[in-house]
Amino acid sequence: MKRFLYIITVLLSLSTLAQNEQLFEEGNTFYNEGQYAEAIDIYKRILDTGKHSAELYFNLANAHYKLNNIAPSIYYYEKALQLSPNDEDIKNNLDFAKNMTIDDIDVIPETGLTKLLNTFTHYLSFDNWAKLAILFVFCSVILFLIYYFAYSSFKKRLAFISSISSLMLFCISLALAFHKYNLEQKDRPAIIFASECKVKTEPNSRSEELFRLHEGTKVQLLDTINEWKKIKLSDGKTGWVANNDIKAL
């Protein structure tokens, strides 16, 4: 019975995959013909099936960009970049889309050791740092065994030094893995979708207005209270906006 259910599940997955491929080609056809709204509808039908890919988000963003839909185009370019962070086409198109935004917000640059540490940490993902840590601890154990059973004093010395070095690299890799994890946990980006968004001092409509943001601006989410979200800008400013004005990435 379990095998039968497994076969049915596989067949349904293959059927959905084939259908999504057909829809993707259909959406591309609409896009190439300049029917961008129709292409968007088709791409969203694929998303509704749970299918996510950098190519799908990229094409969806391109269609929105052609219709001058600032916030959705930036949102989907950012989604594509999350799945394919080194894709130059996505980065270039995202820059073009950002040129349509109104808000010009300064970025507080990282400096000194913080910049160096974060840059180095971002070279690998959390999973890869963790795998590297496991590799180093495995090497350390093997080298220690070589040290223990070796007869030559030179081999013992070399194996011992290599084992200690591997253990130190294990500790560094593990620390970088946790640092990467913490950076990812703190990174909660969102895009302003309202054409004009009032940023308040407190999470209620009666509080004082600090400033206004416009569609397409990228912010960081800090907290949520009822129907309000606390945000932080790249220049360090914070405030509260209504849930309906923002969409988390």
Rank of each mutant, 00 (worst) to 15 (best):
R188H: 02
L145H: 12
Y76V: 00
T101V: 14
Y151T: 04
S140R: 03
T16Y: 08
S140L: 04
A242Y: 07
T111W: 01
Y36N: 09
V219W: 09
E227N: 15
A80H: 06
N28Y: 05
H52I: 14
K200R: 13
F4K: 15
I90H: 04
I46R: 05
A18K: 13
C197R: 09
S195A: 12
L113M: 10
F154A: 13
I246P: 02
K232A: 06
Y57L: 12
E88W: 10
P203A: 10
L23Q: 08
A130G: 06
Y43I: 11
K79L: 14
L176D: 06
Y76Q: 04
L210M: 01
F149M: 13
E110D: 10
T49V: 00
S234K: 11
G239A: 10
T49Q: 00
L56T: 13
F178L: 13
D48M: 11
F58N: 07
R3I: 13
Y77M: 07
N59I: 09
D223P: 08
V10K: 13
A61T: 11
L60P: 11
E110V: 06
V10F: 09
M1P: 05
I231H: 03
F136P: 00
N204E: 01
G27W: 00
S152K: 13
K156G: 12
I90M: 02
I74C: 05
A61F: 12
G216I: 09
Y65W: 12
T201A: 15
G239C: 05
Y57G: 06
F4W: 10
L213D: 02
F30R: 05
K200L: 04
D223M: 10
A194D: 09
S234G: 06
Y31Q: 12
R188G: 01
N182W: 00
Q22P: 03
F160Y: 14
L210S: 01
L213V: 05
E227D: 15
D187C: 04
K180P: 02
A194R: 14
L81N: 12
A37P: 01
H214I: 07
T49W: 00
E55K: 15
N243D: 12
L167C: 15
E38H: 05
N118V: 10
V241Q: 04
S162C: 13
T16S: 14
S234D: 11
Q35N: 11
Y148S: 08
L113S: 11
Y147Q: 08
N244S: 13
V199R: 05
A133V: 11
H52G: 03
D127C: 00
T217Q: 08
F149S: 14
D41A: 15
S234T: 14
S162P: 04
I231D: 03
R157F: 01
S153L: 10
Q19G: 05
K237P: 00
L222D: 09
K155A: 08
L12F: 11
V141S: 08
